[in-house]
Design a protein around this nucleic acid. Sequence first.
DNA 1: AAAAAAT
Length: 488
Amino acid sequence: MRFDELGLAPELLRALADQGYTEPTPIQAQAIPVILAGRDLMGGAQTGTGKTAAFTLPLLQRILAFASPSPSPARHPVRVLMLAPTRELAIQVYESVKTYSRHVPIRSCCVFGGVDIKPQIAEIRCGAEVLVATPGRLLDLFEQKCLNFASVQALVLDEADRMLDMGFVPDVTRIINLLPRQRQSLLFSATFSEEIKKLADGMLKSPVLIEVAKRNTVSETITHRVHPVAAEAKRALLVKLLKSADFNQVLVFTRTKIETNRLARELQKAGIAADSIHGDKSQQERLKVLEAFKEGSVLVLVATDVAARGLDIDELPHVINFELPRTPEDYIHRIGRTGRAGKPGTAISLVSASEVEYLVEIEKLIRIQVEQVPVAGFEPEYDYTYPPSGKRGHRRPLPPPPALAPLAAPRSERMTGRNAQREGANRASNGRFPHLAADGFDFSKPYESPAPLVAAVGNDADRALHHSERPHKPRRPVAALLGGLGRK
DNA sequence: AAAAAAT
């Protein structure tokens, strides 16, 4: 399959050729014809598979059919709106739009918070067919009457499951309700929880579902590894790992902004070229640090989940989870920063006893049992393996030192002693995930997160049921918001 | 119980 078989305009093919691209990735080959045909689309694909170009190219082509050569702003109304969950991601999408539109008379513009709004107002006044934005600033500009959505023909939600989760839903819903009902809607993400899928269905008209690789899977070029370690020993272990020859450029994730700062400082003290990025830093600082990391003057970037999604860092070999993320989906996004475009990558997680439950959820979601490798001198006091009872998050104190050896031994060896007990369970899960099968997990069905991101979606009967199950908990007002979500 | 996104 080649790009020139997809019916794209010569000018777009030329822009692709400028980048050295001749063959579409699977998501591009499947999504481009669907988008050209004007259909709604839900696109699930692993990170690093060319999602951005998959929607940018055909949307540019659709605008092209009506493009105006006139310089008047009135003749360049917003036709395509692209929303992203972080400012850096919006910039990245915008750069892609710029790249592919270089040979066509289409204007584009990018707006996001954290920077002076005036230049953005000036730019919008000049007119742009493609507008890339983060939700807050877009609404700000709308309230200042700088924007008119009347001519929007297509909406793209990049990282759609994030755009539709609790924190974003109010803003995104407001924006959607400002757009013309008659429009094309495209949703893209590497992960779609069942809850988000339901919510998304409400805003799509007979959508085409494209799942290139299976939903909620990770790149096969990534090697996963867990180092069990006591929480107090994590920093020392991280320093040791980073100082070992195996590492050069590394992205390290923590769970809080404060820990991000503290850890970066500690690494600097240890003589490691580290810096941190999180949402409390100024936008200028965020971009500067990211740039330093991309060009290589910063070798270790310590980040919150602000950097978990979409960021395309060239040939990043390693991601380390200093702390596991709260939701298993975020693990997929975090480690998706490595192993991009078929290149190899390693994803290492430092897991303490309190995080074992997160690990179990992650292993279920990605359907991989991650190898656990204790590091000499950092062996934890607890055994992190799953006990025969199958009870999650169980931890038991290990016998004194001599018994540390079995913990360090390969997992398979430890398993053998329990084989008899687990035979039945093993068969149920093809023998691949004995501890999960023992827990009653069905591998023939898609995984459903036990903690709904959205409290209640669906018809009144569903809601009533949900309500009666948990009379003690007040329902969140999400249902009210959903009522207005682009229902036709 | 956290991070992101407007000021």
